[in-house]
Amino acid sequence: MKISVNGEAAETQAKNLQELCAALGHGHWQDRIATALNGDFVSVLARIGTRLNEHDSIEIVTPRQGG
């Protein structure tokens, strides 16, 4: 299925957001990432129950320096 991850086109077989994160190397529950699907926040606990659909847009973010 064709999706977008952090603004870039991607292909995935993942059925839910948790599977996608794991496929992208963020599979450990302690990995410090946060996610959004189509502009809405998805909490760490809700990822496994969040199904992915064609053309979904996913954001995966981490802590970074800021002013």
């Binding site: 190397g25 981490t62 802590p63």
Partner: peptide, 22 residues
């Protein structure tokens, strides 16, 4: 201190390093 959230490149782990620093 102020901080931000930014897109993570897969397997880069930059965010974890910054979190440990803070």
């Amino acid at each position: 201190v102020t901080v931000s959230v930014r897109r993570e490149a897969a397997r880069e782990r930059a965010g974890q390093g910054f979190w440990d620093l803070i």
